[in-house]
Design a protein around this nucleic acid. Structure first.
Lengths: 212, 212
DNA sequence: GATAAGCTAAGTATAAATACTTAGAAAAAT
DNA sequence: ATTTTTCTAAGTATTTATACTTAGCTTATC
């Protein structure tokens, strides 16, 4: 049987080393072709060498984050499977990865056997999102499901000011527009997120990471 | 020179393996006496064997989390240094660890040299919080500094309902008290957190992880 | 050039929140 | 047993937010 070729992208050594160790438990099944500390160095590598079958990818990295790496892979129409291996068991992160086209998502507490299962599954064209992961995605989806569309830049700007405790009037004078405009923005956001008032707007927005 | 004895507590294999790999870079300096997947198994080990000099500890674990491990160590008055090695670069986590008595805090992107430096520093009785870490702590402290005291259980209950979008009247009837009582709770919280209105109350509370 | 999306703004009425304070009863802590 | 904290509640005036709509103008997008 052909070995599955694997690459790792992660900015921290600890994680890369840990993954290497997990992979080595089933050494005969894999062919590790590279371990990279950034998306850039991975794409550099691809210019000379062949693409791996499966990419193990961290999300939070400086400069080019995991999401951008997925985007670039899809843009280049590379035929490799992507497993996101992230420290964030946060629903919105997982969902975003899935939307961008990740084939699997593993939380931090993987063991060698679970990792192996995921790799084989995505290599065979299946998706791998664990039950726990799926339920978290579901939480966010249930909020988003009621969200008719994304917030516009101006709306986000207003949202930030609301979170800071500014009143409608204060925000209006800060942005040089009428109070009614700010009210409209706020009310539009409340409709989009399907919430009843400003307090729920803030808490829902923070859950969805529209503000941090 | 005597080797520094080290133990690791982390629930995920990937992390433990990664740490082992990082430690092996300066193999001669350390004496790894144990690697544990839970606080319980570490304390079990301590009943028979001697305590390590330095403990590398993860925060987020099932059952007994890292904070509880620190507490138990302090209660038992064990003389070992604790370095928290966490995936959370979140100010409130770091601060909580420091308050409980952690001697150092390292973010996820440690390399072997940084880890070594931290281990030697805490072994010598110093504290090790990197500049980045310290600044995050400072962010939370600056909010907390203006917080006269903690929220009471009832206040937290009211806070949750506010975050869900309930009005004062709705919360009052839900908790079988007068609207004025709920108002008092809300206003007291606003004073404690030094915020101007409900929106800022929610955003600040979420930053401080008073609600999730 | 047409279509869609985003930003701007307003009318009118009602509901809710906020600013300021004070204070008694109950529960918890010491 | 006493002190402290928490929970409860209210008065009055003012400010802010919300409900429900409509709509012109500007800026992208195709």
């Amino acid at each position: 049987m052909k070995k599955i070729s694997i690459a790792i992208i992660d900015d921290h050594q600890l994680f890369r080393d840990g993954l290497l160790s997990l992979l080595s438990a089933y050494d005969d099944d894999y062919d590790l072709i590279g371990s990279f500390n950034s998306g850039a160095s991975f794409f550099e590598f691809l210019e000379k060498k062949e693409s791996p079958d499966v990419l193990l990818l961290d999300l939070t990295m400086p400069e080019m984050d995991g999401f951008s790496v997925i985007e670039k892979i899809k843009k280049k129409k590379l035929k490799l499977k992507i497993i996101v291996l992230s420290m964030h068991d946060d629903g919105s992160y997982i969902l975003k990865a899935a939307r961008k086209g990740a084939d699997g998502y593993l939380p931090k507490n993987v063991d060698a056997a679970e990792l192996r299962e995921a790799i084989f599954k995505v290599y065979d064209g299946e998706k791998h999102f664990s039950a726990e992961i799926s339920s978290r995605m579901f939480d966010v989806l249930s909020i988003e499901g009621n969200m008719s569309s994304k917030l516009t830049p101006k709306e986000k700007e207003v949202l930030l000011h609301i979170a800071k405790g500014l009143t409608t009037k204060e925000i209006a004078s800060k942005l040089f527009v009428s109070s009614r405009t700010i009210e409209t923005h706020r009310l539009n956001m409340m409709k989009k997120l399907n919430v009843k008032n400003s307090s729920e707007l803030i808490s829902t927005a923070m859950k969805l990471r529209l503000i941090k």
